[in-house]
Nucleic acid binder design. Structure first.
Lengths: 196, 196
DNA sequence: GGGCTTGCCTAACGATCGTTAGTTGGGTAT
DNA sequence: ATACCCAACTAACGATCGTTAGGCAAGCCC
């Protein structure tokens, strides 16, 4: 079967998988090229630099996260805080499952970006975290969530979410929907006070 | 003030911090040496190889985790499942907080170990995860935890725990005890069924 | 005081790194 | 048929990698 992806995208996908397995610094340009059955130098007909490939991956995943939760909030914005948090978590998990390799790179390899790009990504991550913090604060104000520090709880949930790409495999027996449901259940319960 | 640590341990501590910040592959032997104000080649009077330093760190942290939860289980073994899970989580968090740099290396850099060492570490991680799974299964059998898949729940908790060293800083305003309490609360609640 | 150990030094090794330059062959458009 | 472009090639660059070899000065043991 013939690969209809633009060459540039095939390079990014191959690089994602290698960056996830070995890390950005431990993956050479020649490694990426070899996986595509071409010479290392031939890559430079398609990309400006190794860091450019990293940036393309990180930027694409960041945009996917932003779009996914924006869509989730648009779809559940009028519902109660529990449903809105569930929608947030489910959207996040589905982005990860759609491309675990790229998501892993987004989570772990952004420190190898240039200063400007790293700063830009950190700012977008912060905005994302603030958004989640808002959903948690809503639930607390509403009385359905326990009195936790929203910042700490958001860190807990993001930590539990961001770790997924390090172990999730698409070939496994766990479907994206099952995983999204399970994580949403665990997330909501972790914030829900259990009465005595 | 004079550094009373054996030179070898000072090297490992410095390497831990650099490995955490930049990753193992992106940290050169000369980087480690420069942080200690000596020449790169001088390190080899104290260590056999770069990978040896990585192994020393990873092995030490693995042992610390094993010892900590063994101690926790010895201290709470006769209590109810909720207390035992709390003790497990708290012990884990305290090991991380005692040395976040080394813990981060343990979590993220083990793939750069040689084949034998990597296999050995993965086996110890598996045993650790099975232990946690047992605590969860106990609580389910006891009726205090919701009917979740123990394997999936253990993965959730370990994901939430293993992500801590990537953001926790000892200089921050969050004490190890506060963090351990918060994570134990969130962990227990995430497994506790909320009645309708 | 002679010998040993410790802790560092300088110099250099072969390998590999990211990247540039110049070229070639096959497909497409004119 | 001619001109062009695209995707790949080979060859090489300077830098940096982990590591080895050999030496030198200070402190301790007998």
């Amino acid at each position: 079967m013939l690969d209809t992806r633009p060459r540039r995208r095939a390079i990014e996908d191959t690089a994602s998988e290698l960056f996830r397995e070995r890390g950005y610094a431990a993956t050479s340009v020649r490694d990426i090229a070899k996986a595509l059955d071409i010479q290392g130098a031939s890559l430079y007909a398609h990309v400006a630099s190794k860091e450019d490939v990293l940036w393309a991956i990180v930027d694409r995943v960041a945009t996917a996260f932003e779009a996914a939760v924006a869509g989730a909030e648009a779809g559940a914005g009028d519902r109660d805080p529990v449903d809105r948090l569930r929608a947030f978590v489910r959207a996040h998990v589905h982005v990860i499952c759609a491309d675990p390799g790229a998501s892993s790179v987004f989570v772990h390899e952004w420190r190898h970006l240039s200063d400007d790009r790293r700063a830009a990504i950190l700012e977008r991550r912060d905005a994302y975290e603030r958004r989640l913090r808002g959903r948690i604060a809503d639930g607390i104000a509403d009385g359905v969530f326990a009195m936790v520090d929203p910042a700490l709880a958001a860190t807990f949930l993001l930590t539990a979410l961001n770790g997924i790409p390090t172990w999730y495999r698409r070939e496994g027996h766990l479907s994206p929907d099952q995983l999204a449901d399970a994580w949403a259940d665990l997330a909501v319960r972790s914030l829900t006070e259990v009465p005595l």
